[in-house]
Amino acid sequence: MLSLTCPNCGITADETDLHCDGQAHITRHGAGSNDDDLETYLFMRNNPKGVHFERWRHVYGCGKWFHAARCTMTLEVFGTYSAQTFEPPKALINKIKKKRPEFEGFVK
């Protein structure tokens, strides 16, 4: 069972009240971009065994988006943070590094 605390409404919601929308902080390449950039945007995703940064939506609750950092192997949740940011907060990165010395840091 996975539960995440939505930073928009403060509810610690069950996974079934939420919707995951994949890797966070990807750079969007649209019309006019070159083929490599478009391919990366559409198909290429990080998939490490361990720490992931994801976009989630509190779909049955407040309806708002947020970000979550969690381990996809153990389901440990490191934290959730605002959707209005281009990268994870420094404090959260440091917290993860302390818990997982092998974590190489946020990779875009």
Binding site: T16, Y60, C62
Partner: peptide, 10 residues
């Protein structure tokens, strides 16, 4: 107020 689901309904 709690917004959530009952079964699969909001």
């Amino acid at each position: 107020v709690r917004r959530t689901r009952i079964g699969q309904l909001a």
